[in-house]
């Protein structure tokens, strides 16, 4: 009697699901599908069966069982998972410490690699995964792509290797170094490695440019001149961008206080008081909550009030707004004022 049949006896009526799962998991060294989605109504035995299968099939450090209700923040989730992968339970002996502190996906991936000592597959089991939707909007996609993020891209490695290898060989060909002096050769290639990771990986410089310039890059910062990142924008458009930023990060109710030029002293005093009360409530500041969408009229109103001089609202301004909407989606994700602008249009 094999394992599947044993389980089927324990959980009658679930034999097909059990065998499918076991097939999908296979041997510990096998690659499995990146995401397995187990779906069903409550109390049908999903959690129980999965727990049973994993405890029986795999050793404890090869899977992490996370209850998403329990781990309601990202860092909780990652730290719980890492503890389990590393085989550490916070206890009196270790001063109730996590294996490591971990706040975001990038760090999670780095740590994951650290504790990934063998070739066996690792499983991250998320129970009550519907709660993931309430967390940060980037978490779920990141977790879905986890295999792709943590795995090394063979093609990319080959690409970098094929471009770097000729440079590695260069000293040998020139006769300055011996074929067996690996250490020296590696040291020689070091500087190119950094450059390659910076520029080639992002395709900031193409392979042909790399071949042409590799020798020149060596002694100067040619790479920088190749990728000058400057964007020239008309004067008022800069103000429009600032206005967009202000509109997306400032709560509308404070607009009057910040942007109306003649203000009565009393009003501001009272408002300041209410502001204090707000702080004591422990609410995070608006600016930290990320950009919000806003009507375009509001942005224009702020724009006219922050300008040092008065100008007429001509068609040119509207053209610039249009251009910003279509083109200037800024790259820094912390600075996505324009994304919110677009939201406001929709």
């Amino acid at each position: 009697m094999n394992f599947a049949q044993e389980l089927a006896l324990l959980y009658p009526g679930r034999s097909s699901q059990i065998s499918t799962l076991i097939e999908l998991i296979g041997q510990p060294t096998d690659a499995s599908p990146p995401v397995i989605f187990v779906y069903g109504h409550s109390s049908l035995g999903k959690t129980t069966i999965i727990k049973h299968i994993f405890t029986q099939l795999l050793s404890a450090t090869h899977y992490a069982f996370i209850n998403c209700v329990e781990c309601h923040t990202e860092s909780l989730l990652f730290e719980h998972a890492l503890n389990q992968f590393a085989g550490i339970t916070p206890s009196f002996e270790n001063n109730f410490c996590n294996w490591v502190k971990c706040g975001d996906v990038n760090e999670f991936i780095v740590r994951l690699r650290e504790c990934w000592t063998d070739d066996n597959a690792r499983y991250l089991i998320l129970d009550r995964a519907e709660r993931l939707r309430d967390m940060s909007p980037t978490l779920l996609p990141a977790l879905m792509n986890l295999p792709a993020l943590s795995c090394k891209d063979l093609k990319e490695l080959r690409y970098l290797a094929s471009l770097l290898f000729p440079i590695y060989l260069l000293p040998v060909k020139e006769g300055t170094m011996n074929r067996s002096e690996h250490g020296k050769l590696a040291k020689n290639i070091q500087q190119y490695f950094k450059l390659a990771m910076d520029k080639l990986y992002l395709r900031d410089i193409s392979s042909s440019e790399w071949i042409k310039h590799a020798s020149e890059i060596e002694n100067n910062q040619n790479g920088q001149s190749l990728t000058s990142r400057r964007i020239e924008v008309p004067y008022y458009t800069k103000f429009l961008l600032i206005a967009a930023f202000l509109a997306s990060y400032n709560p509308p109710r404070l607009d009057q206080r910040y942007f109306v030029k003649s203000n009565e002293g009393r009003v501001t005093k009272r408002k300041r008081k209410s502001n204090k009360a707000e702080k004591s409530n422990g609410k995070p500041r608006q600016q930290l909550l990320g950009p919000k969408s806003f009507p375009i009229e509001r942005m224009l109103a702020i724009f006219y009030s922050i300008l040092p001089e008065r100008i007429e609202g001509t068609v040119d301004i509207h053209m610039q707004v249009n251009i910003i909407l279509n083109n200037l989606t800024f790259t820094n994700p912390n600075n996505v004022d324009n994304r919110t602008l677009r939201d406001s249009k929709v």
């Binding site: 690409y159 992002l202 395709r203 193409s206 440019e209 190749l226 083109n327 989606t329 790259t331």
Partner: peptide
């Protein structure tokens, strides 16, 4: 491109970018 090269990294995934040999 009307803006800077970052827009390219922002909009296209790595797999697509690696198919292009770009010169500026």
């Amino acid at each position: 491109i009307a803006t800077t090269i970052e827009i390219l990294h922002d909009t296209l995934p790595k797999s697509t970018l690696s198919l292009l040999r770009m010169e500026k």
